[in-house]
């Protein structure tokens, strides 16, 4: 097909309204990285297996290499850049630092976005569940032990935060 028609797309990314005219075939990850210069979201396998590209769309973890930007019309998108409050890391980011849940760091943004989704759905899952839930996130450095420890600690920290919020 010769012509590549463009379509208007509007969504909210990390709390900011954004819009663009994009080729229909533009993937969400391409728009985030190349359009918005949010390069914290990585492209690993580009075949929806490795999880380096995980972001949240309407509060759910998805692989941004396997969703069109146009499918996110009107959606709330959160990327790794949207987790911290200024210099204050998100509890899950802090847990990955504390427990050294990374080596090269390439998979880390996707791991953390998956981990936050896990905490939001499951609260404080046990170790077996954490490992099962990591089915779609591949790390080739760590052997996962410290990632699992970090997620366990991060989930507990997030649960505490929720209790604090509920008490306030």
């Amino acid at each position: 097909m010769a012509q590549t028609p463009k379509i208007a797309v509007a969504m909210t990314v990390n709390g900011q309204d954004v819009s663009a005219r994009l080729e229909a075939r533009t993937l969400l990850v391409q728009y985030l990285r190349e359009g918005l210069r949010l390069t914290g979201t990585h492209v690993g396998c580009d075949t929806s297996q490795c999880g380096a590209c995980v972001v949240h769309v309407d509060g759910k973890a998805v692989k941004s290499c396997t969703i069109l930007a146009s499918q996110c019309e009107g959606a709330q998108v959160v990327t790794i850049e949207g987790l911290a409050h200024g210099d204050k890391l998100h509890p899950m980011q802090e847990a990955f630092r504390e427990h050294h849940g990374l080596q090269c760091g390439f998979c880390t943004p996707g791991m953390i976005m998956t981990a936050v989704d896990m905490a939001q759905r499951l609260g404080t899952p046990d170790e077996h569940t954490i490992r099962e839930e990591l089915e779609g996130n591949i790390c080739r450095c760590t052997g996962y032990h410290n990632i699992v420890k970090a997620i366990d600690a991060g989930c507990h920290e997030m649960a505490k935060g929720q209790h604090r919020q509920a008490a306030e």
């Binding site: 995980v54 692989k63 396997t66 989704d117 779609g136």
Partner: peptide
């Protein structure tokens, strides 16, 4: 089926 992110879509 698949993994959690795939199951969300």
């Amino acid at each position: 089926i698949g993994d959690p992110a795939v199951r969300h879509r």
